[in-house]
């Protein structure tokens, strides 16, 4: 038996909205320590990982590890039927072929349940090594969203370079070039509005803007995003989901051939 209860459906709604265009389907791996997901986009250029920890839920029970194959577009359809403030409970019997989602309104005068058919999804699990990055940059997630959106109007790829001057995003295209630099800035009183650049060594990498834009669909989840960069390795774009866990997007760089 698996059962997990969240006090606010909005969190799960935002998570699924953040994922569903990049990865159409994937396995929710449930265990006593929580729910995790690892999925690649259809072109195998990026990897999405999700970790929701058991102690971040209001209630969490998992008697047996299970892999639940989910079509995120279909899960999104069901979650659109939940109110943002509804309590949401996910339930499945051991070896079930469906996941039940129960929504309860705040004053408990409306209760609904939806069963989502589960799929059998073959997926290759990749090992992601713990690693020290050359640069780790925390910035407002809305700022990240704006930068990658603005640059997309100029070019297809972006050169991200982190130096002691700041983090610079550069692109070029048919109409011209663009550079946006963010400096380390701890002036704003609200920590969410600050930019922190933790630099071990300068690093510069090129990425496809299309994917970086897609990751920004996670912006409503949290006010800050973290970018981790190392030469010749995928960038990690990480959004924390409160105390519950985090979603991470790994994007392979473009490398000169």
């Amino acid at each position: 038996m698996f059962e997990a209860r969240l006090p606010q459906a909005a969190v799960l709604k935002k998570l699924v909205e953040a994922l569903k265009e990049l990865v159409t389907e994937g396995n929710f791996d449930v265990s006593p320590s929580g729910i995790s997901l690892q999925a690649m986009d259809s072109s195998h250029v990026c990897l999405v990982t999700l970790q929701l920890n058991d102690d971040g839920f209001e209630h969490f029970r998992c008697d047996r590890n299970m892999s639940m194959g989910i079509h995120f577009g279909n899960l999104s359809k069901i979650l659109k039927c939940a109110g943002n403030e509804d309590t949401i409970t996910l339930k499945a019997e051991d070896n079930a072929d469906q996941l039940t989602l129960m929504f309860e309104s705040a004053n408990q005068d409306r209760i609904s349940d939806f069963d989502l058919k589960l799929m059998s999804i073959e997926s290759e699990h990749l090992g992601i090594p713990d690693q020290d990055y050359s640069a780790e940059v925390k910035m407002p997630s809305a700022e990240y969203q704006r930068i990658v959106r603005d640059l997309t109007s100029m070019g297809d790829t972006v050169l991200v370079s982190a130096t002691k001057e700041g983090i610079k995003f550069s692109t070029s295209g048919d109409i011209g070039t663009a550079n946006i630099t963010l400096r380390h800035n701890t002036t704003p009183e609200k920590e969410d509005e600050q930019t922190h650049i933790d630099l071990k060594e300068p690093v510069a990498l090129t990425f496809a803007l299309r994917y970086l834009n897609n990751f920004a669909k996670a912006t409503p989840l949290t006010p800050q995003v973290k970018l981790s960069l190392t030469k010749d390795l995928p960038v990690v774009v990480e959004y924390k989901v409160g105390e519950l866990g985090q979603v991470r997007f790994f994007l392979a760089p473009k490398i000169d051939d």
Binding site: M40, H44, V45, C46, L47, E124, H125, L126, G127, I128, P129, T157, T206, A208, L233, P234, F250, L251, A252, P253, K254, I255, D256, D257
Partner: peptide
């Protein structure tokens, strides 16, 4: 030019 690498070129199957 630059080539788009596949993500599985960086992470081995677990």
């Amino acid at each position: 030019g630059s080539a788009q690498k596949s993500i599985s070129a960086f992470f081995k199957a677990a």
